[in-house]
Design a protein around this nucleic acid. Structure first.
Lengths: 245, 245
DNA sequence: GTTCAAAGGATCCCATTCAGACCTTTGAGG
DNA sequence: CCTCAAAGGTCTGAATGGGATCCTTTGAAC
């Protein structure tokens, strides 16, 4: 019985699975594509905007320029970006003419629970942490701008502006690791949301909750901010569980 | 003025910094060393226990066996593990004879705030999420065992058993990503804790708080679990801020 | 004491990735 | 109109990493 060595047999309860998870999600090229795509899909760089120059972006992403260029080339071929040469050139995000919802495989129940749990922890925590800070005027404006943009978004842009708003809340915490974690969990969430329809009543409801959350943050009320975010997140969770199970 | 291109000038507030962060922290070898070291330092594999076989671990970490072997070899040379050949052999964690606190550079104020903010969000969230679940008897036993082991730890083992307990709380959420996130933030926290002394009164206080947290989780009281964890985490935060600023 | 399976140890070859240098394009400003 | 700086485009050699195969060691079971 190979699983009963003297040193085994102790409850590792998933901690070792978490620690001995893959060191890298894919090769450098794939991860670079994913990261740039993430920035586009989360609305951090919008249509018409320019990505950092290849040289700068390669340094920031910690990959060689060659690898970054290959990633950009495949994004070009997929219609996500366009490059222009010459001074004041660069790589620009294209208008999202692509429709045809990229129907991924339905997530497993474990994956769903995992994402929803992590999301609840991160986003309610971020809302509370943001409300605990005294925000700079610029940060307050940014938050409000994201809220307004999301509320006024047509259906086909809603996912992006919604993501951008949630990211803005994380940004208000001024904790880079938390921002990155929220961005990552949001990306996983969006992949799941792509598998279910976007219903107008849900949008209405979301917008009202967004307003509550942002107001609580701007008012510096962490308790309300957390509770409002918890309700908001629970709504999405119920929606997803309803459609995917 | 190169920063005032038509598409720039918009507030990116740190979101792009979070998204355009390095794709990989180092080369495969370095990351592999770090990961295995993390498992040892967090007490997930304890002295005398065996790591998974090279072939299995290489698959789980997503690196080639060659790379993993190089990582293990440097850990051998550093005295962390020993390998034995033959059937029923393997790579075993050594007794922690190493002392000589590895005095790293003092963390920057930004890094300190970042870690403490993320830690608060993750660990209070994990405590609440854990209390919301009905735990299997095995999970309950594991939690209690980690609590007892931590409470009975001598000073030189306290950091490890303390880490193990916090990880056990995350495990109780059954959300792999959350476990991994807690493990990572704990590793960063430990690096900072290594720079400050371990005081007996703090240990006493920690133990009392640990008991409160675990009891609340076992009783299924998320509100108390969160609040107790928040107090516990705030205590460490105050300690660190006091010593490092 | 022979056998055998499972573990670490070693080696090959090839794809990926990197670092750096260089070329080409382009528009603003002199 | 010319210059120049900054951007994308290209190339090459070296380093890294991965996949596969085989060897060696070891203790349990028969």
């Amino acid at each position: 019985m190979p699983t009963s060595l003297p040193s085994d047999g102790i409850d590792k309860g998933g901690a070792d699975a978490a620690l001995f998870r893959p060191v890298r999600a894919g090769n450098a090229f794939e991860e670079t594509v994913e990261r740039v795509l993430q920035a586009i899909r989360l609305g951090v760089v919008r249509a018409g905007e320019r990505l950092p120059s290849e040289r700068e972006l390669a340094v920031r992403l910690g990959v060689s320029r060659m690898t970054l260029r290959e990633a950009i080339r495949s994004l070009q071929e997929a219609g996500y970006v366009e490059s222009r040469r010459g001074r004041y050139g660069g790589t620009f995000v294209s208008e999202p003419a692509r429709s045809a919802r990229p129907v991924g495989a339905a997530p497993s129940a474990e994956e769903l629970d995992d994402v929803l749990c992590l999301r609840t922890v991160l986003e309610t925590g971020a809302a509370e942490a943001a409300a605990n800070r005294t925000l700079a005027p610029q940060a307050r404006r940014h938050l409000r701008a994201c809220l307004d943009e999301c509320a006024g978004s047509p259906g086909d842009a809603y996912r992006r502006t919604d993501s951008r708003l949630h990211l803005a809340i994380a940004e208000a915490t001024a904790a880079p690791s938390l921002i990155a974690a929220v961005a990552d969990v949001r990306t996983r969430l969006n992949a799941m949301l792509d598998a279910i329809p976007l219903l107008p009543p849900n949008i209405e409801h979301s917008n009202a909750q967004h307003t509550m959350i942002v107001n609580a943050i701007l008012d510096g009320d962490p308790t309300v901010a957390r509770r409002a975010m918890a309700e908001h997140v629970d709504g999405t969770a119920a929606l997803l569980r309803g459609f995917l199970r």
